[in-house]
Design a protein around this nucleic acid. Structure first.
Lengths: 138, 138
DNA sequence: AAGTTGACTGATAGTTACTATCAAGTTGTA
DNA sequence: TACAACTTGATAGTAACTATCAGTCAACTT
């Protein structure tokens, strides 16, 4: 059993966010001790993990709640949950592609600047006009 | 020269966001026509591209503005810009790793559900307790 | 010529998902 | 007994959009 602080550091999520998620109904099974303190079980960590996963690929909280509710509803919703996971995976793959593109651009930029530095460019030009050119990336 | 609408569809960014970014000072070189309408040049598209890139890897708008201002300031800031791009690239690589992990989890989940469906599981159990178990992922 | 359509404008309000601040309660140690 | 270190919920604030609105202007239609 873990306190919210332990879960926060274990999962690299802020305590604030965990409380916010808890209040949003994302962790319906968490028990409290006699002091009303949340005690996360190993299973609860699983829930935190899937919520973190959905969140990190951009699923909005409303949809996460829906997924959680489907889970609670039981096996009759398995197919629906399967579809959600499939489309989420697709979305994540698209994000991966997008991220790769952005990484390419950053790499291009990195080389571009490195080259400027290496060749010790002197910079006596009008910033407004010239940067405009030199920064062109299209 | 492109209207904001054309840029929006070309770059897959909403007109709203483009105006918001423009107001934030991200595109300092955009010209207006006689009707006060923004006309994006090819170069301006380059700026949109780098802003989109920085934004999509989580750079906050305040920092993007700083980068833009460094660009405007000229070559004396090249080293600083180089460092920004380098650390942004690093951040993007970390995001890539994180995304891969989340994809693994989604794949696990996908298989898990597929298996349940394939084996035509009957589901006469208490949802609260049993899902709790079956969903465990840790 | 008058009217309608469509694209643009800035201003302002609303939304999402945190994120920070606060006062208050409990427990362990000096 | 005091105080430090945790927890709690409530509330306010923030970032970055996102939507709505009223208004301008040009081009086309009737």
């Amino acid at each position: 059993m873990y306190t919210i602080k332990e879960v926060a550091s274990k999962m690299n999520i802020s305590e604030h966010t965990l409380r916010f998620w808890a209040k949003s109904g994302f962790f319906p099974f968490i028990k409290r001790d006699s002091n009303n303190t949340r005690k996360f079980s190993e299973n609860d960590l699983g829930w935190v993990k899937i919520v973190k996963c959905l969140r990190s690929v951009g699923t909005e909280n409303k949809s996460i709640k829906k997924y959680i509710d489907l889970c609670i509803k039981g096996d009759s919703t398995i197919k629906e949950r399967f579809e959600i996971i499939k489309s989420t995976k697709l979305k994540a793959l698209q994000q991966m592609e997008e991220l790769k593109k952005q990484l390419d651009l950053l790499e291009y930029k990195e080389n571009y600047y490195q080259n400027l530095i290496k060749n010790n460019l002197n910079d006596n030009w009008n910033p407004i006009n010239k940067i405009h050119e030199s920064e062109s990336l299209v």
